[in-house]
Amino acid sequence: MSLQTSTLHHIAQLARLRIEPEHEAAMAAEMSAVLGLFEQLAKAPVDALEPLSHPGDPTLRLRADTVTELDARDDFERIAPSMMGGYYLVPKVIE
């Protein structure tokens, strides 16, 4: 199957990835080839099966409600691209 450019744009927007116009065709072609592999799935006899999202079918483990993490903002601030007054900064969000 071949991936439409409009679909690629939509997906890239959802994924917040900018694709240079000159790379679009190559990306669409490579993705189309990969999507071609997926046609195999339609042939698998799985209609009666439950999906398996976690290998081994485990169940969720619960932890006790205790505070174990102390303030480490200074550590995280050191690796933050842009922080002021303890806040992470992003270009103004208009609401």
């Binding site: 932890r63 409600d65 205790t66 505070v67 993490e69 303030d71 903002r73 303890g86 992470y88």
Partner: peptide
């Protein structure tokens, strides 16, 4: 009404300094 967050051991108390109660898990490290 819990002491710690739903998926991490950071405190849920109201009114802390900004980002002082956000641990590595809360920050999506």
């Amino acid at each position: 009404q819990t002491h710690s967050k739903i998926f991490s051991g950071a405190a849920t108390a109201y009114g802390a300094e900004p980002n002082a109660q956000a641990c590595a898990v809360d920050l999506g490290m």
